[in-house]
Design a binder for these strands. Structure first.
Lengths: 234, 234
DNA sequence: AGGCGGCTTAAAGGTAGCATAAAGATGACA
DNA sequence: TGTCATCTTTATGCTACCTTTAAGCCGCCT
């Protein structure tokens, strides 16, 4: 699972609180910007489209609840309210206006960060992010399943060594393109000049023995004399 | 938009609070059931699959946070915590365990209902494929019952240590996907870099001895040299 | 034809990474 | 305090993997 860095918009007119929050976010690797008025907040939310908004209700120009309603007309980004008002009616009003959470001041930084993590989880459940990229490479009867790190030929699973697998993946990701020896060595063996051309040739041999029905007449992997190799889209 | 009637599971041992909540829910047309212990809550969550859980942390048998963790092994249903503990550490612990909201007692019924509405909104944002998940994992003769936290092989119940169980669950929830050593260490041992690769190997060994009929030719758990492990859907 | 460069293939070490056992450390519980 | 279960650490043997080497093959050139 890749670590995504979420962007947060802080809407708060009190510089002390704003600093507190922004340093907390910074320490956790969030990207963040700040706005001090309701109008600026709405504009910023529209232009920079942050992932999450932290909203103080007591803004100088517009009422915070109004900000929520305005933003909700076009976006359902998570909005976490930070407010000094602890009355139930305020909470209910904000939540029903479309806020996703409500934290009363004074709040602990730890709790704020925990609620942010919860909000991130909610984001990851949303439809846009759930698209399961079932990435697999298909070339005739040869199939590479990247998630499972397996290769099947005619439905039968093959056993490839790590190097063979890396090599095959590299060729597959560049189907129909000729890859030079040097390029392959750099990609598979790493930047350091560890790789040897002789070694590469041996690997191509063992790989062909596994995926080609007739290794002397290769169907998938073509040799380009003096240059390199190429996987053919059949 | 059609009005859907959500079902709510109330987990609360105090009859007074339970009544308060259930009458409030009833007045708003929610379907609801109740449980008074942690075990009953977990069982009920698995069998009746409610839409939302309202959870008191101070249960007589199991700690509420433990209930959250257990439910989270198979379900991501929204869990709203109702707790008398108002310490930040308690909130953070519960939220990071997988709670979706945290309300401290005494709470107002109005706020509870508002937060429920917010939770409903979150549910409506979810993609289809996030919702349904079985409380049982079945792979040939290997069965994991998440709710009961038991593992059976050929109908015989196995005794796994907590680590072994976590490891197996992680593999099961990612069937047919290679999990890197690093990923497994992070997920099972926690975010801190406590885990050691040598330790992981020992655990894989003991786990295989328990679930593989022939540990030297593993059927369920495959080794990917230099990368990690993978549970195979057989 | 014969020589040559580049490729394939087979086989032989050397080694990194893995499995396994067993000892040591930790912590829960009574 | 001692016992038990669990987790960690260490050490050892081993398997699978990678590299190296060398022999054989094919097409090309003069």
């Amino acid at each position: 699972m890749a670590e995504k860095s979420y962007s947060v918009l802080i809407v708060e007119d009190d510089p002390a609180v704003r600093n507190l929050v922004s340093t907390a976010l910074e320490s956790r690797g969030y990207q963040h910007t700040a706005a001090t008025t309701g109008k600026a907040a709405i504009a910023c939310a529209a232009t920079t489209t942050p992932d999450i908004m932290l909203l103080d209700l007591g803004l100088p120009d517009i009422d915070g609840v109004e900000v929520i309603k305005r933003v909700r007309t076009w976006s359902n980004m998570p909005i976490i309210v930070l407010s000094a008002r602890s009355d139930d009616s305020d909470k209910i009003e904000a939540l029903d206006a479309g806020a996703d959470d409500y934290i009363t001041k004074p709040f602990s930084v730890g709790e704020l960060l925990a609620r942010l993590r919860t909000t991130e989880r909610h984001l990851s459940y949303r439809s846009e992010n759930t698209a399961p990229q079932e990435s697999q490479f298909v070339n005739d009867s040869l199939i590479i399943d990247y998630a499972a790190a397996t290769v099947t030929l005619d439905g039968k699973e093959l056993h490839l060594t790590p190097m063979e697998y890396k090599l095959l993946c590299l060729l597959a990701q560049n189907v129909d393109r000729v890859l030079t020896h040097q390029y392959i060595l750099r990609e598979v063996w790493g930047t350091s000049q560890d790789g040897d051309l002789a070694s590469l040739r041996v690997f191509m041999g063992t790989l062909r023995k596994k995926i080609e029905t007739n290794p002397s007449r290769p169907r998938y992997i073509q040799t380009h004399v003096g240059v390199g190799y190429r996987m053919v889209r059949v």
